[in-house]
Simulated scan of single mutants.
Amino acid sequence: MGGRCERVYVRLTPGEKDRALDLASRNGLTVSQLVRVLIQLPADYASEGARTAVVLDRTTAGGLEREMRRWGNHYNQAVHALNTIALFASRGGSNIDYFVEQLECANRNLEDVKSGERGIEGKLRQLEGTTLVDGR
Score class of each variant (00 low, 15 high):
1 M>D: 05
3 G>W: 00
6 E>G: 04
6 E>V: 03
6 E>K: 04
7 R>Y: 13
7 R>M: 12
8 V>Y: 14
9 Y>R: 14
9 Y>I: 11
9 Y>S: 15
10 V>C: 14
10 V>F: 15
11 R>I: 07
14 P>K: 06
21 L>W: 08
27 N>K: 09
30 T>N: 08
30 T>F: 07
31 V>E: 04
31 V>G: 02
31 V>L: 14
32 S>G: 10
33 Q>E: 08
34 L>R: 04
35 V>K: 09
38 L>G: 09
42 P>Q: 07
44 D>E: 08
44 D>P: 04
45 Y>P: 03
45 Y>C: 06
46 A>Q: 09
47 S>K: 13
49 G>H: 13
50 A>Q: 13
52 T>D: 12
52 T>N: 12
53 A>H: 11
57 D>N: 08
58 R>D: 10
59 T>H: 05
59 T>Y: 06
60 T>D: 05
61 A>F: 14
62 G>T: 01
63 G>C: 00
63 G>N: 04
65 E>R: 10
65 E>C: 05
65 E>I: 01
66 R>N: 07
67 E>I: 03
67 E>Y: 08
68 M>F: 09
68 M>K: 08
68 M>P: 05
69 R>K: 11
69 R>Q: 12
70 R>P: 02
71 W>V: 00
73 N>T: 10
76 N>T: 09
77 Q>A: 06
78 A>Y: 01
79 V>S: 00
79 V>Y: 01
80 H>V: 01
81 A>E: 02
81 A>V: 06
81 A>C: 13
83 N>H: 14
83 N>G: 07
84 T>C: 04
84 T>M: 11
84 T>E: 11
84 T>G: 01
84 T>L: 05
90 S>R: 15
90 S>N: 15
94 S>P: 09
94 S>R: 15
97 D>C: 00
98 Y>Q: 00
98 Y>F: 01
99 F>T: 01
100 V>Q: 06
100 V>C: 05
101 E>T: 07
101 E>A: 13
102 Q>C: 07
102 Q>T: 00
103 L>N: 10
103 L>P: 01
105 C>W: 11
105 C>Q: 14
106 A>V: 02
108 R>N: 06
109 N>H: 12
110 L>M: 12
110 L>P: 01
111 E>T: 05
113 V>H: 02
115 S>H: 12
117 E>C: 03
118 R>G: 07
118 R>Q: 12
119 G>M: 07
119 G>K: 11
120 I>L: 14
120 I>G: 03
121 E>M: 08
121 E>D: 09
122 G>D: 15
123 K>W: 15
124 L>I: 13
124 L>C: 15
126 Q>S: 12
128 E>I: 04
131 T>F: 09
133 V>W: 11
134 D>H: 10
